[in-house]
Simulated assay, not measured.
Amino acid sequence: MLETLTHVTLALSRHVRQLQSEGIAVPREVEELTAFLVHLARIRHVPPAVAVKNGSHHDPNVPDRMLVTKHEAAHLLGVSVRTVERLVAAGRLQQVQVERLARFRIGDLEAYVHGLAEAAN
Rank of each mutant, 00 (worst) to 15 (best):
L2A: 11
A11S: 14
L19S: 05
Q20G: 02
S21A: 15
S21D: 13
E22K: 11
I24F: 04
I24A: 07
I24M: 09
P27S: 10
E29D: 15
E29A: 15
E29I: 11
E31D: 14
E32W: 00
F36S: 05
F36V: 06
R42E: 08
R44L: 08
H45W: 02
H45P: 01
V46L: 08
P48D: 09
P48Q: 15
K53D: 12
K53W: 08
G55C: 01
H58I: 07
H58M: 02
D59R: 13
P60K: 06
D64S: 12
L67W: 10
H71A: 14
L77S: 13
S80I: 04
R82N: 13
T83C: 10
E85H: 05
L87T: 04
A89W: 04
A90G: 06
V96I: 14
V98F: 14
V98W: 05
E99Q: 13
R100F: 03
R100Y: 03
L101S: 15
A102Q: 10
A102C: 10
R103L: 11
R103V: 13
R105A: 07
L109H: 04
L109C: 07
L109V: 11
L109F: 02
E110G: 01
A111C: 08
Y112F: 15
V113M: 10
A120F: 03
